[in-house]
């Protein structure tokens, strides 16, 4: 991906504070075209499945694991069932405060998940992720 290309971001986390932190850090990278936060994964899924995607654009989704109603894993499972012409425009990163091996191992089972990041999200972590992309 070209370094200068602008990216869209979606943050899914039931903690308002974590959404706020993620938004601030993402904006500070200067690579952010747009950013949307969702406190509920179900609403994010609804948004992703209905949004019109510009063929050239790429959206990065940062999703938490532990959330009530629909958790991060359930979101990823539902996302993987979306039509290919939608899902191909998104890259998912799981962002978690979990240090549980089972949770972390489970991340590898989902082909749509690029990698997981530890909370708290920092400018450094995000910069590394964007440069590797």
């Amino acid at each position: 991906m070209a370094q200068n290309k602008k990216l869209h971001f979606i943050v899914i986390d039931d903690s308002k504070l974590d959404c706020f932190i993620a938004e601030k850090i993402i904006k500070s990278t200067g690579k952010c075209e747009s950013i949307k936060s969702f406190l509920q994964a179900r609403e994010a899924l609804e948004f992703v499945s209905k949004a019109t995607v510009d063929a050239q654009s790429q959206t990065i989704i940062l999703v938490d694991i532990q959330m009530p109603v629909m958790n991060g894993f359930e979101f990823v499972e539902a996302f993987e069932k979306l039509p290919k012409d939608i899902s191909t425009h998104y890259t998912i990163y799981i962002i978690t405060s979990s240090i549980n091996e089972n949770d972390l191992d489970r991340v590898h089972n989902y082909s749509s998940v690029k990698q997981f990041l530890n909370k708290p999200l920092t400018s450094n972590n995000l910069a590394i992720l964007l440069n590797n992309d």
Binding site: S15, I25, Q66, T96, S97, K119, P120
Partner: peptide, 17 residues
């Protein structure tokens, strides 16, 4: 590892910010 660590990690992130 999450319910106790979650809020703590949030605050750590907030302090950094």
């Amino acid at each position: 590892t999450h319910d106790l660590r979650g809020p703590l990690v949030s605050v750590m992130g907030a302090i950094e910010l």
